[in-house]
Simulated assay, not measured.
Amino acid sequence: MSNETSAVAAPEDRDAEATVRPKRLAEFVGQQRVREQLEVLLHSALRRGSPPDHILLSGSPGLGKTTLSMIVATELGSGLRLTSGPAIERAGDLAAVLTSLSAGDVLFIDEIHRIARPAEELLYSAMEDFRVDVVVGKGPGATAIPLDVEPFTLVGATTRAGLLTGPMRDRFGFVGHLDFYEPDELERVLSRSAQILNIAITPDGAAEIASRSRGTPRIANRLLRRVRDYAEVRGAGVVDLPAARAALKVYDVDPLGLDRLDRAVLRALVENFGGGPVGLSTLAIAVGEQPDTVAEVCEPFLLRAGLLARTPRGRVATANAWRHLGRTPPPQIATPVTQAPEGLFNLDP
């Protein structure tokens, strides 16, 4: 059992996450602006009797991109096909998926920025003209066979919107960015999940878990299950404030929501490199992780928490990072700030 609070879902957690996923827009907590925009888009399409424009959802892992794609299909009363960018290695793989779609289906491609370039070029014509050209043969004798595709809606999800090519981004009629959640929104998520999972939870217990969930519903639900386990084994079976604090200490989640890997990154910056600047690859080697893991799992929250800064020369630990580790920051970076910035979870992306 992992004690990490990564927002990337582990296989053993997916069944539990599926149980608490909202099925309709009205059940979806948070992301008010994106939810309202999607409601208008989908209801308009239903009135016209035609598929809505293609949808691109961006944001950090665990904020609800996959859930929203499923909700889109449910609201439209359509079938849903799920795949991912890394799984589409060749144009033929994508052509097989596209030609198997029924009219009005929703195709969800997770991590769409990682789709292979030949497949991406094939997707252009499918998105615009509902047609794909399948090349048969090789060399001078190769022939392109046009195949019609039933009208469909593509929902693409990405954690790295900046890696999308311009032509790909331009083909989406709606682009929504999912922000980190406020603590009160996470408390509502936890209350809903606890009811579905038949977990006894108190308001102060929910508030404590929410405050350590890094603004991410997936992490909040994962911590809820771990606190439930602790409460059942070492407590009275109720997720209250004492149980939450004791359990999260066991699972190495500190009051800011930092886990072992987050603190390892900060310690490497402060203790190994004097606060930085240091390059991402070097930092990743120092903590024994892949650069993508540090960049996609740790950095977004550390940046928003005011513990890490990016500079042209590399990553730098802020004065708050030094203080969080119980160290005195050097005079050149010391500031009077003694806590994380106000509005921790509502900073502009």
Score class of each variant (00 low, 15 high):
338 T>R: 12
82 L>T: 01
191 S>I: 08
296 E>V: 02
281 S>D: 12
142 A>S: 15
79 G>F: 02
119 A>F: 05
90 R>W: 00
175 V>C: 12
302 L>G: 08
68 L>T: 07
273 F>N: 09
136 V>E: 14
1 M>K: 11
132 V>D: 05
208 E>H: 06
326 G>L: 07
286 A>R: 09
143 T>A: 13
41 L>G: 02
6 S>C: 06
263 R>N: 09
42 L>G: 05
129 D>E: 13
137 G>P: 03
221 N>C: 12
5 T>P: 06
185 E>M: 07
74 T>I: 01
39 E>F: 04
347 L>I: 10
196 I>M: 12
333 I>T: 06
150 E>M: 11
160 R>F: 01
195 Q>E: 15
82 L>H: 00
230 Y>C: 04
115 I>F: 02
284 A>W: 04
93 D>R: 02
106 V>F: 05
21 R>T: 02
196 I>V: 13
310 R>Y: 09
146 P>Q: 12
14 R>E: 14
219 I>C: 01
152 F>V: 04
214 R>G: 04
189 V>K: 00
24 R>D: 13
172 F>H: 01
235 G>I: 03
133 D>K: 13
183 P>T: 02
31 Q>N: 03
114 R>P: 03
82 L>F: 03
102 S>K: 13
32 Q>E: 14
265 V>M: 10
115 I>R: 04
264 A>V: 07
39 E>D: 10
75 E>S: 05
324 H>I: 02
231 A>M: 03
334 A>E: 13
319 A>C: 10
46 L>C: 10
116 A>E: 10
114 R>A: 03
